[in-house]
């Protein structure tokens, strides 16, 4: 009996420890998720119920259902689908080009021996830390001279050329874990370099390629500055710019309608995140990624 006693207090202690951790985690989780839930709840409320309230459920007798239909008609002439389509018109090419160009570049750097390889790798690492602002104005001038201002292409031409060193680096890191014997066997069987990449490596690289695609997509959905600079026309207006026009809404506009629009804008991102959260969490933790 005397021997068991310290063991029991230790057992109890670990339970208290676990309880404290759960309480902290749940408390923080509520604070973090609250703004999103509040936004969603408030999109069913009248202005009077949004003001001065912290509740996330609308009063049962005053649930407003028509904020979502009216938010769907985002502007006088266009539904939210028009703006979504415009966003996708630069985002889909961006995702595809980023994946292709970054994979090929990473393949060349990690699988071939050639003079200058170390210099190439060093440039990739150095450009990892280069902020976008360093190139912003000259790239704008370049786009102007190429006649690409106010075209969707201005937001994806760069991505054809593996300019995102972060993704190149991520794929290189992943490729290092794949045994070289695989591609050597393929080249003995007569595959050329691109065939080896496509038939042998790409299937193994699938998780990292999906991660690259997802991050490109997410950052593109959040991109406001790019469209602000390059997509100045009404016909090319993407979702981020259409939403930005709603930030400075005044009191006369139903807030619920604006929240409904914001909710509609976040839904695809949230949906994709939950469908693929495994890829996000894994790639951030494995390669020490950005946000």
């Amino acid at each position: 009996m005397t021997l068991q006693e310290p063991k029991q207090t230790k057992f109890k202690k670990s339970h208290i420890n676990a309880a404290i951790r759960y309480i902290i985690l749940i408390f923080i989780g509520i604070i973090l998720i609250y703004p999103i839930l509040w936004m969603f709840g408030a999109s069913f409320m009248e202005n009077a119920d949004i003001f001065g309230s912290v509740g996330i459920l609308p009063p049962f007798d005053r649930v407003v259902w028509d904020h979502f239909p009216s938010a769907w008609q985002l502007s006088t002439h266009n539904t939210i689908l028009f703006y979504y389509a415009n966003t996708l018109r630069f985002l889909i090419p961006r995702v595809i080009f980023t994946i292709i160009s970054c994979t090929i570049t990473a393949y060349a750097i990690s699988r071939f021996n050639f003079p200058g390889k170390r210099i190439v790798f060093t440039i990739v690492i150095v450009t990892l830390l280069m902020p976008e602002v360093a190139f912003r104005i000259p790239v704008y001038v370049l786009m102007r001279d190429l006649g690409l201002l106010n075209t969707f292409a201005s937001l994806y031409v760069q991505d054809m050329f593996a300019v995102n060193s972060f993704f190149v680096f991520m794929i290189i890191q992943f490729m290092r874990t794949i045994p070289r014997e695989l591609d050597e066997a393929a080249s003995i069987d007569g595959c050329n370099a691109l065939q080896t990449l496509w038939f042998i490596l790409v299937p193994v690289l699938r998780p990292i390629i999906i991660s690259v695609g997802l991050f490109t997509f997410m950052w593109g959905m959040n991109d406001y500055l790019g469209p602000l600079i390059y997509l100045t026309g009404a016909e090319t207006r993407p979702l981020s710019l259409a939403l930005a026009a709603l930030v400075d809404f005044d009191v006369l506009v139903p807030f619920g309608r604006v929240f409904a629009a914001a909710t509609l804008a976040l839904l695809p991102t949230i949906g994709i995140f939950f469908a693929c959260s495994r890829y996000f969490v894994e790639s951030v933790t494995s390669s020490g990624g950005k946000e």
Binding site: W219, N222, S277
Partner: peptide, 24 residues
Amino acid sequence: FRTAYYIPSILGGNVAVSILWVRM
């Protein structure tokens, strides 16, 4: 928890969140 805490990082830069923050 790990997944839930990551959601703000995914959404934070979105214009929709700016709309939300003005109201918060």
